[in-house]
Amino acid sequence: MTAQRRFPASVYREGEEPDPRFSLANERTFLAWLRTALALYAGAFALEALSLPEAVAWRTAAALVFLVLGTLCAGQAWRGWRSTEVSLRRGTPLPGLGVGAVLVLGVVVAAALVTIGLYA
């Protein structure tokens, strides 16, 4: 597979081929984000499927937060993989993890919504 034909070209035209072990570690991080996205989607689904909490407004609000967070994680999986691979190829510092703060905050908010809904 030549460098020109590798997808996405915006990644593979940058810099030089990095240590393959780092690329593989980057790939596993991508997969971990993907599973996190799936878990958050599963959370949204489970709340609705199990009618937990029974108060519709609180349940929908919590499920929506999980849904948004899941989409955020799926986006971070792809965006993070791309930008990390570019950094590895250029030999520049790896990107930060601002999404992590949003994720933590979101999970706390969703848990609070479920808890309030249970006792509302």
Partner: peptide, 10 residues
């Protein structure tokens, strides 16, 4: 290896 499996996964 390239980014196609990652794109499909996302």
């Amino acid at each position: 290896r390239d980014g196609l499996p990652m794109l499909a996964g996302t």
